[in-house]
Design a protein around this nucleic acid. Structure first.
Length: 464
RNA sequence: GCUCCCAUCGUCUAGUGGCCCAGGACACAGCCCUCUCAAGGCUGGUACACGAGUUCGAAUCUCGUUGGGAGCGCCA
C-alpha cells in the first residue's frame, strides 16, 4: 500500500510555523516512504476564509519547497459531493434533521455544565420522524450510543474513547453547508488518505471521525497526532512569537532549509544531530521518533541554525537572496562577482540574509558617516601618517589582491613599529565606517582599489 | 465542570531497567585562536515535577498527586 498523506490548512488565518511544522511532518512522511502528498484547503467556513490567507498557504508551501503531488483541492468546490453523502445518510437513517434552536441548545449546555456533566447534545431530535415545513434545521450524525472507539495513534499509542461521551455532531448547518468534521471524513476517504498527520488538538475529534468513517463503510486511516508548538514563553503560539505569516521569515532573510531544519527538531530527533539537509530529513524521518510533549518556539536557535545553513549554502543561493535584501535597502545591483564575494566573506558573520545586507552595505555604496566611537578612537592625528602611508602603498599596488594588500599593511606596521592592530583598525574604519568587518585584507581587496583610495582620502579630510 | 493528552537543564532534545551521581544543541560565563567581528576549539553552571510502589537495581514500569495543554461551536 502506498502512503498518502495530506496537509489540510484552513485559510481563516495566516499560515504560521505551527501549520508549517504539521505540513512538514506530513510531507516528510510521504517523501520518506515514496508516497503521495496532497494539499487540501479547508475553506468551508466562507465567512472567515480569505483569498489572502489561501495565497499565503500556496506561496509559503512553494517557498519551502513542500510541493504537493495532488491538489490543491478546495472543499468549497466539493459541495455537491458532501450533499450527496448527507442525502444518502438521511435515507439510510444514519443522520437526521434536528430542529433545535440555538437558544435551546445553549440552555441544554448550561444545564449540563451546572450539573458537572460533559456538555453534549442529548439527541432529542434523533428519533423524530416528522418533517416540519418551513422550520430551519441542521443535520446531525447518529453517533453510536454505546461501546468504545479505539484510536491506535502512532505517536500517543492507544487512546480509548467512550461513545457515551460523544454526541450527535452537526454535519450540515441550517444553511445546508457541511461542517469541518464531516468534510474531513469524506475527503480523507475520497482521497484515499492512508496516514492522517495533524496537530494533537484534533485527537478529541478523531473518535467522531472514525465513527463516521465506519458509517461510510470504510477502514479509518492511520493517525499520528503531533504535539503542539508553544510560544517562547510557553504559552499558546500567538502573534507575539511566531504566529506571523510564514512568508515573514522569507522577508527576514531566513533560508527555507533552515526554517524546516529548525521545525523538524521540534518534536522529532535523530540522535544528537542538529543540522540536517533536506535529503537527510527525508531519509531519517520517522513517526516513531516523534515526541508526545509540546515544545516552545525558540527564535535564538532558529537564528543559529539559519547561520549554520548560510555557512554551507551554495554561493548562488546567497547572492540571490542578498540582492533581494539589498533591494529593500535601496541598493539595486547586478554585480554578480561582488555579490558572491560579499556573500562568501560574510557567510559566517550573518545569521540572516537581511543581516548580511545590512552589515555589508558599505561594499555596495559609500557609508553615510563614521560610527562615532570607532572614528573617535581610530581616526586620530596619530593615525594620520599611517593612513597616508597606507594610501601610498596601496595606490602603488599593481596586483590588487588580499595577499598583496596584507603585505602593504605589514610593511606599514613595521615602518611605524606598531602592532598590526594599530594599522588595521584605522584602515578598517576608513573604508568601512565602523570598527567591525571581515579580515581587513580581504575586505580591502573586495572593495576595489578605486573606492578604497577615495575612502582613505575621505578619512584624511575627516581627521584634518 | 466533564473528556482526552502531556511532564529530563531557561529552551530544543538523547535516554526504552543496570553503559546515567544523566549525554548533545541553543542561550549564558570564562579561556584559546586573533587586525576588529565572526567562525572554530576548550572549560563551566543549571534538569529526570512530587509521592508511593514493582525490582537486587528506575529518568526508564505501575498507581496517585501536582502542574501544563487540548476538546466540549450551526470554527477549523
Amino acid at each position: 500500500m502506498t502512503v498518502r498523506t495530506r496537509f489540510a490548512p484552513s485559510p481563516t488565518g495566516m499560515l504560521h510555523i505551527g501549520g508549517v511544522r504539521t505540513a512538514l511532518f506530513s510531507w516528510l512522511y510521504a517523501r520518506h516512504h515514496g508516497g503521495t502528498f496532497i494539499l487540501r484547503v479547508e475553506d468551508t467556513d466562507r465567512e472567515r476564509s480569505t483569498d489572502e490567507a489561501t495565497q499565503v498557504i500556496l506561496d509559503g508551501m512553494q517557498w519551502l519547497g513542500m510541493t504537493a503531488d495532488e491538489g490543491p483541492f478546495y472543499q468549497t468546490r466539493r459541495m455537491d459531493r458532501y450533499r450527496e453523502v448527507i442525502d444518502q445518510w438521511l435515507v439510510e437513517k444514519k443522520a437526521y434533521r434536528c430542529y433545535c434552536t440555538r437558544e435551546e441548545l445553549e440552555e441544554l449546555r448550561a444545564g449540563q455544565m451546572a450539573a458537572k456533566q460533559n456538555p453534549r447534545y442529548d439527541g432529542r431530535c434523533r428519533d423524530r420522524t416528522d418533517v416540519r415545513e418551513g422550520v430551519p434545521f441542521v443535520i446531525r450524525f447518529k453517533n453510536p450510543l454505546d461501546g468504545t472507539v479505539v484510536v491506535d495513534d502512532q505517536v500517543h499509542g492507544r487512546v480509548v474513547f467512550e461513545n457515551t461521551q460523544l454526541d450527535d455532531l452537526i454535519i450540515a448547518r441550517s444553511d445546508g453547508t457541511p461542517t469541518y468534521n464531516f468534510c474531513v471524513v469524506v475527503d480523507d476517504w475520497d482521497m484515499a488518505i492512508t496516514h492522517v498527520v495533524r496537530g494533537d488538538d484534533h485527537l478529541n475529534n478523531t473518535p467522531r471521525q472514525i465513527n463516521m468513517l465506519r458509517a461510510l463503510g470504510t477502514t479509518p486511516p492511520v493517525y499520528a497526532h503531533l504535539p503542539m508548538i508553544l510560544g517562547s514563553d510557553g504559552a499558546k503560539l500567538s502573534k507575539r512569537h511566531g504566529a506571523v505569516s510564514v512568508l515573514q521569515y522569507q522577508e527576514e532573510g531566513y533560508l527555507p532549509g533552515a526554517l524546516l531544519n529548525y521545525l523538524v527538531r521540534l518534536g522529532w530527533s535523530h540522535g544528537d544531530q542538529e543540522v540536517f539537509t533536506l535529503e537527510e530529513m527525508i531519509q531519517y524521518f520517522d513517526i516513531k521518533d516523534v515526541n508526545k510533549s509540546a515544545s516552545a518556539f525558540n527564535p535564538e536557535k532558529l537564528l543559529w541554525l539559519n547561520q549554520q545553513h548560510i555557512m554551507k549554502a551554495p554561493v548562488s543561493v546567497l547572492s540571490d537572496g542578498l540582492r533581494e535584501q539589498l533591494l529593500l535597502l535601496g541598493v539595486d545591483t547586478n554585480d554578480q562577482s561582488l555579490l558572491e564575494g560579499v556573500a562568501n566573506i560574510l557567510r559566517e558573520r550573518a545569521r540572516t540574509l537581511k543581516e548580511m545586507a545590512q552589515t555589508g552595505l558599505y561594499f555596495f555604496r559609500d557609508f553615510e558617516q563614521y560610527e562615532e566611537k570607532a572614528a573617535k578612537k581610530n581616526l586620530t592625528a596619530d593615525a594620520m601618517p599611517i593612513l597616508a602611508a597606507l594610501e601610498a602603498g596601496l595606490a602603488a599596488l599593481t596586483e590588487w589582491d588580499a595577499v598583496a594588500i596584507h603585505e602593504v599593511i605589514n610593511i606599514v606596521a613595521a615602518q611605524f613599529n606598531v602592532s598590526l592592530g594599530k594599522v588595521a583598525q584605522p584602515l578598517r574604519v576608513a573604508v568601512c565606517g565602523s570598527a567591525v568587518s571581515p579580515p581587513i585584507d580581504a575586505t580591502v581587496a573586495l572593495l576595489g582599489k578605486a573606492s578604497v583610495l577615495v575612502r582613505l582620502q575621505r578619512a584624511h579630510r575627516y581627521i584634518a
